[in-house]
Amino acid sequence: MEGPYQHEASDSAYQFTKAAIAKGHEILRVFFYQDGVLNSNKLMDPQADDRHIRKQWSALAIENNIDFIVCVAAAKRRGINDTVIAEGFKIGGLGMLTELAIEADRLVTFRA
Protein backbone atom coordinates (compact mmCIF):
# COMPACT_ATOMS: atom_id res chain seq x y z
CA MET A 1 0.00 0.00 0.00
CA GLU A 2 1.11 3.57 -0.68
CA GLY A 3 1.38 6.26 1.96
CA PRO A 4 -1.69 8.02 3.39
CA TYR A 5 -2.64 11.44 1.92
CA GLN A 6 0.17 11.09 -0.66
CA HIS A 7 -1.96 8.62 -2.61
CA GLU A 8 -5.60 7.54 -2.58
CA ALA A 9 -4.64 3.89 -1.93
CA SER A 10 -5.17 4.19 1.85
CA ASP A 11 -8.64 5.66 1.34
CA SER A 12 -9.59 3.01 -1.22
CA ALA A 13 -8.37 0.21 1.06
CA TYR A 14 -10.35 1.68 3.97
CA GLN A 15 -13.56 2.07 1.94
CA PHE A 16 -13.20 -1.43 0.51
CA THR A 17 -12.60 -3.00 3.93
CA LYS A 18 -15.63 -1.19 5.35
CA ALA A 19 -17.83 -2.34 2.45
CA ALA A 20 -16.62 -5.95 2.78
CA ILE A 21 -17.47 -5.94 6.51
CA ALA A 22 -20.88 -4.43 5.74
CA LYS A 23 -21.56 -7.33 3.37
CA GLY A 24 -20.76 -9.80 6.15
CA HIS A 25 -17.30 -10.88 5.04
CA GLU A 26 -14.62 -11.88 7.48
CA ILE A 27 -11.45 -9.81 7.09
CA LEU A 28 -8.60 -12.09 8.13
CA ARG A 29 -6.09 -9.29 8.27
CA VAL A 30 -5.09 -5.93 6.81
CA PHE A 31 -1.38 -5.86 6.10
CA PHE A 32 0.34 -2.47 5.84
CA TYR A 33 3.67 -2.31 4.07
CA GLN A 34 5.89 -0.01 2.03
CA ASP A 35 4.80 3.59 2.77
CA GLY A 36 1.48 2.12 3.91
CA VAL A 37 3.05 1.61 7.36
CA LEU A 38 2.62 5.37 7.86
CA ASN A 39 -1.13 4.78 8.22
CA SER A 40 -0.41 3.59 11.77
CA ASN A 41 1.39 6.69 13.03
CA LYS A 42 -0.43 8.09 16.06
CA LEU A 43 1.33 11.44 15.61
CA MET A 44 -0.66 11.95 12.41
CA ASP A 45 -2.45 15.29 12.73
CA PRO A 46 -4.22 16.38 9.54
CA GLN A 47 -6.12 19.63 9.09
CA ALA A 48 -9.52 19.60 10.77
CA ASP A 49 -11.54 19.83 7.55
CA ASP A 50 -10.00 16.63 6.13
CA ARG A 51 -10.53 12.99 7.07
CA HIS A 52 -8.24 11.54 9.73
CA ILE A 53 -6.98 8.40 8.04
CA ARG A 54 -5.29 6.90 11.09
CA LYS A 55 -8.31 7.42 13.35
CA GLN A 56 -10.61 5.87 10.71
CA TRP A 57 -8.42 2.77 10.61
CA SER A 58 -8.09 2.49 14.39
CA ALA A 59 -11.86 2.68 14.83
CA LEU A 60 -12.43 0.05 12.14
CA ALA A 61 -9.86 -2.32 13.66
CA ILE A 62 -11.22 -2.00 17.19
CA GLU A 63 -14.95 -2.08 16.36
CA ASN A 64 -14.56 -5.19 14.23
CA ASN A 65 -11.68 -6.82 16.07
CA ILE A 66 -9.58 -7.12 12.90
CA ASP A 67 -5.88 -7.93 12.85
CA PHE A 68 -4.02 -4.86 11.46
CA ILE A 69 -0.37 -5.71 10.88
CA VAL A 70 2.35 -3.16 10.13
CA CYS A 71 5.33 -4.71 8.33
CA VAL A 72 8.31 -4.53 10.69
CA ALA A 73 11.01 -4.07 8.04
CA ALA A 74 9.09 -1.33 6.23
CA ALA A 75 8.26 0.32 9.58
CA LYS A 76 11.85 0.35 10.81
CA ARG A 77 13.03 1.98 7.59
CA ARG A 78 10.55 4.78 8.16
CA GLY A 79 11.01 5.35 11.89
CA ILE A 80 7.76 3.64 12.88
CA ASN A 81 8.00 1.55 16.06
CA ASP A 82 5.92 0.64 19.12
CA THR A 83 6.24 4.14 20.56
CA VAL A 84 4.43 5.80 17.63
CA ILE A 85 2.06 3.05 16.58
CA ALA A 86 -1.62 3.79 17.23
CA GLU A 87 -4.23 1.61 18.92
CA GLY A 88 -5.60 -1.11 16.69
CA PHE A 89 -2.28 -1.70 14.91
CA LYS A 90 0.42 -4.28 15.66
CA ILE A 91 3.91 -4.65 14.23
CA GLY A 92 4.58 -8.00 12.56
CA GLY A 93 6.76 -9.78 10.03
CA LEU A 94 6.33 -10.18 6.29
CA GLY A 95 5.49 -13.84 6.94
CA MET A 96 2.08 -12.64 8.11
CA LEU A 97 1.41 -11.52 4.53
CA THR A 98 2.41 -14.96 3.24
CA GLU A 99 0.06 -16.53 5.81
CA LEU A 100 -2.72 -14.36 4.39
CA ALA A 101 -1.91 -15.53 0.87
CA ILE A 102 -2.04 -19.15 2.04
CA GLU A 103 -5.28 -18.84 4.01
CA ALA A 104 -7.47 -16.13 2.49
CA ASP A 105 -10.08 -16.87 -0.19
CA ARG A 106 -9.36 -13.46 -1.67
CA LEU A 107 -6.46 -11.08 -1.44
CA VAL A 108 -6.72 -7.51 -2.71
CA THR A 109 -3.72 -5.20 -3.04
CA PHE A 110 -4.17 -1.41 -2.99
CA ARG A 111 -1.07 -0.04 -4.63
CA ALA A 112 0.15 3.20 -6.07
Binding site: Y33, Q34, A73, A74, G93, L94, G95, L97, T98, E99, A101, I102
Partner: peptide, 28 residues
Protein backbone atom coordinates in the same frame (compact mmCIF):
# COMPACT_ATOMS: atom_id res chain seq x y z
CA UNK B 1 1.52 -18.73 -4.67
CA UNK B 2 3.05 -16.40 -7.23
CA UNK B 3 4.97 -13.15 -7.21
CA UNK B 4 4.80 -11.10 -10.41
CA UNK B 5 7.51 -8.51 -11.02
CA UNK B 6 6.33 -5.70 -13.31
CA UNK B 7 8.27 -2.61 -12.23
CA UNK B 8 11.86 -1.54 -12.76
CA UNK B 9 14.28 -1.76 -9.84
CA UNK B 10 15.74 1.17 -7.82
CA UNK B 11 13.37 3.87 -9.14
CA UNK B 12 10.85 2.33 -6.73
CA UNK B 13 11.00 -0.24 -3.96
CA UNK B 14 8.47 -2.63 -5.50
CA UNK B 15 10.81 -5.18 -7.01
CA UNK B 16 12.85 -5.35 -3.80
CA UNK B 17 9.65 -5.93 -1.78
CA UNK B 18 8.63 -8.56 -4.32
CA UNK B 19 11.88 -10.41 -3.82
CA UNK B 20 11.50 -10.32 -0.03
CA UNK B 21 8.06 -11.88 -0.50
CA UNK B 22 9.42 -14.64 -2.71
CA UNK B 23 12.01 -15.53 -0.07
CA UNK B 24 9.46 -15.59 2.75
CA UNK B 25 7.08 -17.77 0.71
CA UNK B 26 9.98 -20.14 0.08
CA UNK B 27 10.72 -20.23 3.81
CA UNK B 28 7.07 -21.22 4.40
Amino acid sequence: LMVVFRTAPYGGIYSFEGLENVLIMGAY
